[in-house]
Amino acid sequence: MLTLAKVTKKYGNHTAVEDISINMENGLYGMLAPNGAGKTTLIKMITTLLLPTSGEILYNGMNIWEMGTAYRDLVGYLPQQFGYYKNNTPTQYLNYLACLKKMPKKQVAGRIAELLELVGLSDVAHKKMKKFSGGMLQRVGIAQAMLNDPKILILDEPTAGLDPKERVRFRNIISALGKDRIVILSTHIVSDIESIANQVIMIKNQHLYQMDTVDAICNMLEGSIYELEIPNEEFESFEQEYQVLSARQESGHMLVRFYVEEEEGIPKNSVLCNANLEDVFLVVYQ
């Protein structure tokens, strides 16, 4: 179990995250927050890149800083900006990282082949990475994070810059990995985690706002999300009165999805809808 106990990180007077307490067991955790909310700081603390200013992070009851390399042996990390050597092939790069992770030499070749197969890169295993697309590089990133078969897999904004097809592919790979380990997927793209996360961690104003299942989080807005057809010319005034979550142009009118806090303010003919994670994201981080 990975436990964050009252974790705070400050840089001088600036507080990046404050008083965050979370317990995580095996499963996929989606960390959802807009850019700058402190996701990456939190992740850097979990990966031991940053030391918390106060509070502690425990793995099975032991402080991860005291565990040192023993803890790092359990971690797989795909940073937001995945660094690689352009002139390396995936095999060369993974070999190097296996060396950094102190993996036994005998296991390395087999493990690399297995992982490249998993992420669908076996056919380009010996091609230089400078010719790879963003999606292919992210898949190399997943492979390197999985090299040491980590108990904690941390993925920081892994789908940023990927096309929809690559994102779906990526999601499927991640989904399969969360069965027997803690997977923390940090993102501001709601669809990345909506269908695969067991739990969603929401951070707002540097604090933990909510941590729950997708359904439970969506239920927070139960009875507050509506859809309504309005004439095009009324959209501007409607937008000023209600928090519009999405608007779609249809034949001669607009289909508006919006949030209302109190029942009295609901316009006539509005249709109550089930809230989705994107609605929650937009309402919480408005």
Partner: peptide
């Protein structure tokens, strides 16, 4: 320029890279 340092620093020996 390869931006590999944060990744390496999370590995067993990469901390002392």
């Amino acid at each position: 320029l390869a931006h590999v340092n944060p990744l390496f620093a999370t590995t067993n020996t990469g901390r002392g890279i």
